[in-house]
Design a protein around this nucleic acid. Structure first.
Length: 316
DNA sequence: AAGACTTACAACCGCATATAC
DNA sequence: TGTATATGCGGTTGTAAGTCT
């Protein structure tokens, strides 16, 4: 075991390759192949280590490398494969002819990762970012009305109750946002308390408690998704566009049903709820849809990732 | 025009695994 | 079977080019 001593040799050149070095390397590989990368530099007359030569060849000089911008199809493929394989760049590259793992990795780090983050999606899990939700208790502290008793007799009951609470929270946050927009134009929720009519605020204390105590790892994705979606609402500074049916509860239950959860028995009247966030702000259906190429259920926040069974088996 | 900042990507580093002896 | 070496991989860095102020 241990590290290769291949690059420990002193006096070897590092840094960018010159055209002359490239030419030497290409000619040597065309003539002798690359049976041993360690032996190759000497053979080619290069003052480089074998590792550097291998990298230069595989990432840049190989004749079958496809250069230029990634097509939208390639982008979709990378997103899809990354959702399954994670940062297995070489495995992803194997499904994209002509693209190197290094190139895909760079494309991911400079474009796709940022795109997902802007959309409120965790680039690691490909799920809505739950870390954003960490600040919700502070928001919740703004709504400090009475606490009604809640009796969670079963998980389903708990989920239903939570859905109602989430819907209330959504309404509250949207009201907050609207109040801020009209009064100050500011998006800082820290200043909303005096702007709000307390009689319109839902009772949010049970949800605060639930947020702090719930084990998210055992919660259905739907709960996490709905919570995250609601958190995004706290960041709204743009105008809110009417979009019937996109309330928290419908999101919650459309996801819940897809995960095999019980159908809802309680649902707030959609007409009573304000609309969901404007897609242009970088969260919600439209944005996710544009990222994932349209594989988004009509009334759900999160796109259904289409897992490729043979591929999964391959990497199981 | 120039400095600050951002973006893109080539290249390096070090760890993990495969292979040779 | 154990150890040394070679190779591959993923994370990170350095820097040139582009953009903004």
């Amino acid at each position: 075991m241990g590290r290769s001593p291949c690059c420990d040799e002193v006096g070897l050149k590092k840094g960018p390759w010159t055209a002359e070095e490239d030419q030497k390397l290409v000619q040597c590989i065309q003539k002798h192949g690359h049976g041993s990368w360690r032996a190759l530099p000497k053979l080619a007359g290069l003052n480089r280590c074998g590792k550097s030569c291998r990298l230069r060849w595989t990432n840049y000089l190989r004749p079958d490398i496809k250069r230029g911008k990634f097509s939208s199809e390639e982008e979709q493929t990378i997103l899809h494969l990354h959702s399954i394989l994670g940062n297995k760049w070489s495995a992803i590259a194997a499904h994209l002819p002509g693209r190197t793992d290094n190139e895909i990795k760079n494309f991911w780090n400079t474009h796709l990762k940022k795109k997902l983050i802007r959309a409120g999606i965790d680039p690691v899990t490909h799920r809505p970012r739950t870390d954003l939700f960490a600040t919700l208790p502070q928001l919740m502290a703004l709504a400090s009305l009475g606490v009604p008793p809640m009796d969670y007799r079963s998980l389903d009951d708990q989920l239903r109750a939570e859905a109602v609470q989430l819907a209330n929270l959504q309404r509250y946050l949207l009201q907050s946002s609207a109040a801020i927009n009209t009064s100050t134009g500011d998006n800082d929720l820290g200043g909303i308390t005096s702007e709000m009519d307390p009689t319109n605020l839902p009772n949010l204390q049970p949800l605060t408690t639930m947020i702090l105590s719930t084990d998210l790892s055992r919660s259905p994705f739907a709960v996490v998704d709905a919570r995250t979606q609601l958190h995004h609402l706290s960041e709204i500074s743009c105008s809110l566009e009417q979009s019937p049916g996109n309330d928290a509860t419908s999101i919650y239950f459309s996801q819940g049903e897809s995960k095999g959860l019980a159908a809802p028995m309680v649902s707030p009247p959609p007409s009573a709820l304000p609309p969901l966030a404007d897609a242009s702000m970088g969260s919600g259906d439209a944005c996710s849809s544009s990222i994932y190429g349209g594989s988004v259920a009509a009334n759900s926040f999160w796109p259904e990732v289409l897992f490729d069974e043979p591929l999964l088996a391959e990497f199981a």
